[in-house]
Simulated assay, not measured.
Amino acid sequence: MRLSTRLAAAAAAVLALSLPIAAEAHRAWLLPSATVLSGADVWVTVDAAVSNDLFFFEHQPLRLDGLRVTAPDGSPARPENQATGRYRSTFDVRLEQPGTYKLAVVNAGLFASWKENGQTRRWRGSPERFAAEVPKDAPDLRVTQSQSRMEVFVTSGKPSGTVLKPTGEGLELAPVTHPNDLAVGNAARFRFLLDGRPAAGLKVTVIRGGIRYRDKLEEMTLTTGEDGGFAVTWKEPGMYWVEASVRDGNAAIKEAKERRAGYSTTLEVLP
């Protein structure tokens, strides 16, 4: 295989594994079939992809290696029927408990680059593999810690709050308004936390889906206050993609000099 072909394949693989901190030209997302449901034998299907247009399958599937489903009582729930195709991954969750579920893809790891025989080598993997696979005395060695979290919230019956509690790791959304209680014309409030503390001055991007079918992106860019809070007043119903990311020097792994933390969620706004 030619070097250019191998590099292209490697880049595509990295992008398919990426979360919100991926290249700006593409957006990674989860799309639930619905977020507010009721009745007996309730299921939700979730699509997962990386694409230019929200929420349209035209680039790469999102890998589900870091998939975690949390039931309303805080216990782990089992996703079913997982599959990955050419443009998207998908899975189902049976909502056996009343209340709010959290469906998340969470990844953490290290990126490294260094010089070898005049060429730049790149590596990505877990801290456990780092010591065995990356030469610690390599010239121009640069190591970055990556933390990424992508979530959607789905409620069967009455909304509940157990799954909304932050973990204190990386960049997280701490809803003030319940994420399954959003309606046009109402202001919704949220907070961003970084390692459990308010993420002040953070840039937040909000985009309504369906950009393939309109001339303007209609992107909202908001900035969090001192308490990490921000508010959104929804003008139209639909599925909205909310994303934020941060770079700092607070890596939890000694080999890394930089930390990149990213977060995104998909919220459904009803009429």
Rank of each mutant, 00 (worst) to 15 (best):
S148L: 08
T177M: 05
S160D: 09
R189E: 15
G168Q: 05
G157T: 02
D140R: 12
P139F: 04
Q147W: 14
R189T: 14
M150E: 11
H178P: 03
A187Y: 08
F130A: 02
T155E: 05
L193R: 03
L182V: 01
P179W: 00
R197H: 13
E151V: 10
V184N: 11
R149W: 08
L194D: 06
P159H: 03
S148Y: 06
T177R: 07
N180V: 05
D195I: 00
G168F: 09
S160A: 10
L164P: 03
K165C: 06
D181N: 13
F130C: 03
L182D: 04
P198N: 08
L173C: 05
P198S: 08
P139W: 08
A199W: 00
F153K: 00
N180D: 13
S160C: 06
T162K: 15
A188H: 02
V152D: 02
R142F: 10
V143G: 02
G196P: 09
G161N: 15
A183C: 12
Q147Y: 13
T167M: 06
E133S: 13
L194V: 01
R149G: 03
P175Y: 02
G185W: 10
F190N: 05
A138P: 08
L164G: 06
D140Y: 10
G168N: 09
S160P: 03
P166N: 09
A131H: 14
F192I: 01
V176A: 13
V176Y: 09
R189G: 08
D137S: 14
K165P: 04
V176L: 13
F130P: 01
H178K: 08
E169Y: 12
G161P: 01
A187E: 15
G196C: 11
